[in-house]
Design a protein around this nucleic acid. Structure first.
Lengths: 211, 211
DNA sequence: CCTACCGATCGGTAGG
DNA sequence: CCTACCGATCGGTAGG
């Protein structure tokens, strides 16, 4: 699924070009780095861990990345692109404000909780490890992401479903959602779908009737 | 302020005993460790950093702690005791449910945001670094902390101020609050007091009149 | 609590 | 992308 995009770039059946192979290897490294950074944390993960996870030797990742920090940056950028795309898709559907909120909450939670969804959690919890200069590139994308939420909150307020639609409210909302990664365990008691429903209910000031 | 408790243990004017001096040094190490763990993260902080912060040489902290992990555990336990005590004090005041909630939110946020309040943020964000065996000791204290919130939520629901009072609701509430450490900057735009007020408003399903 | 030290490991590089 | 390697640093210990 993650790969279908890549695969579609080459004509069917043709052997991949050298550049494509290289891109694949790079993508594999980012994926492995994301998983390890999430599981063990950036500092506790070694380049050797990442290299071995994709069948390389310790020095080889530096052929694809200049430094460990560049790998972190790549993971974070991928996480941001992923969650932003998911959110835009969710918001695009023609639905009522409430239904659109629910779709966005579900999209956000999925990107954080689904097995293999490692990029965004790394983005959320490894800021400290990122050098100042690299943050600017990330903040630009982050702003676009938050703008989608701000638009949603404005809409909800106009519909009388939310008391306030300012920045602090958005931070409370995203805080409640992002915190779910701390307690959610797959297959245990609540599904992502159920948590999304409960979150919507928690966020909105008027319960309204179901659905 | 943090020290007045300690000082009160000895009779006024008397020289501290050897055991008290030792306890003070240990407490200094915990404080320094808390600050550094918070700023740089557990993995990125070295024993040497901590030692130098209190004027010791690199090997000396091991006279007080068996390992770096034991230092982390000490920081976390102190964080939990601190936030639990603050919360119990806040909840103890004879007030309306809404006022009690506000006091608890303020207490929780203060323990996380006030300058020098490093223990709880470490507790929140360094779980990964703590070995399994040490978690049990911490979880026992954590349960007592969460029980206070559960009681508060039950009360709010009975008063018709909250739609639900189950575990997921508590997790949303604490998520929104704990996330504030990610965006709050002292002296910038919002005070802790203001954020507490906004959080209460966000949490409750009925706005009611001011105050 | 210091001095002196150790084994292990880490991010990164040169040279192919 | 591998081999071979380097300088630096780290958590921890012995012996006082």
């Amino acid at each position: 699924m993650t790969r279908s995009g890549k695969a579609a770039q080459r004509s069917a059946g043709a052997a991949p070009t050298a550049a494509q192979e290289e891109g694949n290897r790079r993508a594999e490294l980012v994926r492995a780095a994301g998983r390890l950074f999430r599981e063990k944390g950036y500092e506790a993960t070694t380049i050797r861990d990442i290299a071995h996870a994709v069948g390389m030797r310790s020095g080889s990742p530096f052929y694809h990345f200049k430094s460990k920090q560049e790998m972190l940056k790549a993971v974070m950028l991928q996480g941001l692109e992923q969650v932003r795309r998911a959110l835009e898709d969710a918001a695009a559907g023609k639905r009522s404000p409430r239904e659109r909120l629910r779709a966005m909450v579900r999209a956000h939670l999925s990107t954080i909780l689904e097995p293999g969804a490692d990029f965004v959690p790394v983005l959320l919890y490894e800021w400290r490890a990122l050098p100042d200069e690299m943050r600017a590139d990330i903040i630009a994308v982050k702003d676009r992401y938050e703008a989608i939420w701000d638009a949603m909150l404005r809409e909800l307020k106009q519909a009388g479903l939310l008391r306030r639609d300012d920045t602090v409210t958005r931070l409370f909302v995203l805080g409640a959602l992002n915190w779910v990664v701390q307690w959610y365990r797959p297959g245990e008691r609540y599904s992502v779908e159920e948590i999304a429903g409960r979150a919507v209910e928690f966020i909105l000031s008027q319960s309204g009737e179901a659905r």
